[in-house]
Amino acid sequence: MRKWGAWATSAVFIYIVYLILTLWTGELGLWSLGELITGAVIALLGAIPLGNIVWKRGDVRLLQPHRWILFLFYLIGPFFFSMARANIDVAYRVITGRIKPGIVRFQPHLKTDFGRTLLANSITLTPGTLTVDVDDGTGEFYVHWIYVKNPEPRPEEVCGPFPTWARRIAE
């Protein structure tokens, strides 16, 4: 039963993305009949390999709508601000060549797959930090830092408010 639920959810998500992609293409209101059928077929075919993997470790709580609103707020607010600041910092390092790289380790205490993925992607998208590895068992992050200020950093020193937000959104 759970398996079928996972497959159906994946199919619905793929269908929604396809419908957004083909907005304003047809005579039936916003879509044409051909697009609707093609989208349904693609959604079913795509859900067969994906459905089981995406929701594997009980990440069903991602379907709660308040998490989506939090995520959008995070993307526009704190994340974009950190990224802009770090971009200017790295631009300065590109021009002057003043770097002190190293791979540091820290423990952000995240348990779910989605929380870890969100934090790792945020870190990698922010200039100056790059997630090289995440330990699956302990959840420790190995991050390549372009200017190491402290070889034994706390999570906040490397990536600012991201761990708090990842916990708020995904756990």
């Binding site: 190293g102 791979i103 540091v104 190995y142 190491v148």
Partner: peptide, 10 residues
């Protein structure tokens, strides 16, 4: 990593 001060992964 070239010139690394620290490499915890290694």
């Amino acid at each position: 990593p070239v010139g690394a001060v620290v490499d915890r992964l290694e």
